[in-house]
Simulated scan of single mutants.
Amino acid sequence: MSNSPSRSVIVTGASGGIGRAVAERLAADGMSVLVHYAGNPATAEEVVAGITASGGTATSFGGDVADETAMANLFEHATTIFGGIDVVVNAAGIMPLAPVATMDLETFDRVQRTNVRGTFVVSQLAARSVRAGGAIINFSTSVTRLQLPTYGAYAMSKGAVEALTLILARELRGKDVTVNVVAPGPTATPLFFEGKPQEVIDRIAGANPMERLGTPQDIAETTAFLAGPARWVNGQVIYTNGGAA
Rank of each mutant, 00 (worst) to 15 (best):
L191H: 03
A224L: 06
G118N: 12
Q236R: 13
S123A: 15
G13E: 12
I18K: 01
G63C: 04
T189F: 08
A227M: 05
G152V: 12
F139H: 01
W232Q: 08
S60R: 02
P190L: 13
W232M: 08
V9C: 01
V9A: 02
G16D: 13
G133R: 05
D86R: 04
A27C: 02
N73G: 14
M210K: 07
E221Y: 12
F192H: 14
A132M: 03
T187D: 10
L105D: 15
L146F: 06
A155W: 00
K196Y: 11
V116R: 02
L105Q: 15
R145H: 10
A127P: 08
T107A: 13
A66D: 11
P216M: 01
A244N: 09
M71H: 07
A78D: 10
N90R: 02
E199L: 02
G185P: 06
T187P: 14
Y37H: 09
I85T: 15
T215H: 03
I94K: 12
S54A: 07
G174F: 08
S140A: 15
S123E: 01
Y37T: 03
N241H: 09
G185Q: 12
L34T: 03
T150C: 09
V22H: 11
V87S: 02
S54L: 01
E45M: 13
A66M: 11
R170A: 14
F61Y: 01
L168P: 04
K158V: 06
L172A: 03
A183K: 00
V88K: 04
E106S: 15
L125D: 05
V87F: 05
G159D: 15
Q147F: 14
M210T: 05
A126Q: 00
L148S: 13
A188D: 15
R128N: 14
A245I: 10
E162T: 04
A27T: 01
S15W: 10
V179H: 06
A127L: 08
G134W: 00
V200S: 13
I10R: 00
I81A: 10
M1C: 04
A70P: 04
V143E: 13
A98M: 14
T119W: 09
T223S: 05
A70F: 04
F75M: 08
V35I: 14
D67Q: 09
E199S: 03
V182T: 02
A23R: 07
H36T: 06
R231P: 05
H77N: 11
G56F: 00
T240V: 15
A135I: 06
P99D: 12
R128K: 15
